[in-house]
Simulated scan of single mutants.
Amino acid sequence: MELIRGLHNLRDKHRGCVATIGNFDGVHLGHQKVLDQVKEQAQLHNLPSVVIIFEPQPREFFAGNDAPPRLTRFDEKVRLLEKQGVDRVLCLTFNSRLRAMSAQAFVDELLLNGLKVKHFVVGDDFRFGCDRSGDYTMLEAAGHAHGFSVEHTHTFEIEDQRVSSTRIRESLMRGDFELSERLLGRPYTVTGRVVHGQKLGRQLGVPTANVRMHRFRCPLQGVYTVLARVQGRDYPAICNVGMRPTVNGRLPVLEAHLFDIDQQLYGQLMQVRFLHFLRPEKRFDGLDALKTQINFDLDLAREWFALQAGAKPISGSEQI
Rank of each mutant, 00 (worst) to 15 (best):
G197D: 03
D262K: 11
Q263D: 13
D160Y: 03
G16D: 13
L172W: 15
P48Y: 13
E76I: 14
L81R: 11
D124K: 14
T93L: 12
E159D: 15
N9D: 08
F296S: 11
F128C: 09
T166Q: 05
H154C: 05
E170G: 02
R244S: 08
R244Y: 04
E281G: 04
D124Q: 13
V18I: 06
M243T: 00
L258R: 01
D131E: 13
V272T: 12
V50G: 01
E76T: 14
R79Y: 03
L265D: 07
L290G: 10
R244A: 14
F120Q: 08
H196F: 01
G316W: 00
K291C: 12
G232M: 08
F156C: 00
V253Y: 01
S164F: 00
L110M: 13
G129L: 08
T153C: 04
D262H: 11
L29P: 10
E82K: 13
H8E: 15
V163A: 02
T225N: 14
K282W: 09
R97I: 02
Q57N: 08
G222F: 05
F148W: 08
L184S: 08
R59N: 14
L110T: 12
R229N: 11
D288H: 15
L183H: 13
H214M: 12
S315I: 04
S315A: 10
D285Q: 05
G30S: 10
Q268K: 15
A237V: 10
V34P: 06
V190E: 07
R97P: 01
L258M: 05
V34R: 03
F120M: 07
L110Q: 08
H31L: 07
G316M: 02
L139H: 04
G147F: 11
T166P: 01
A309H: 15
L71C: 09
L139F: 00
V163M: 06
T208D: 03
C239T: 15
A237T: 10
V86S: 09
D288C: 04
G22D: 05
L184P: 07
R59S: 11
V253H: 00
A289Q: 12
C130P: 02
V38G: 11
S96D: 09
R79G: 14
W304L: 08
C218V: 00
V226W: 04
H154E: 15
G175P: 02
G64K: 06
E255I: 15
A105P: 05
G22E: 07
L10T: 01
L112I: 15
S133H: 11
R132M: 10
A301F: 06
K199T: 09
G232S: 04
L265C: 06
I21W: 01
A301G: 05
Q263N: 10
M138C: 07
H214L: 06
H8R: 12
R174D: 12
E181D: 11
A301Q: 04
F284I: 00
H31P: 14
G30N: 09
H14V: 02
G185C: 01
V122R: 05
V206F: 08
R79T: 09
V121C: 13
G197H: 02
R79Q: 12
F277T: 11
P236D: 04
I52E: 07
K291W: 02
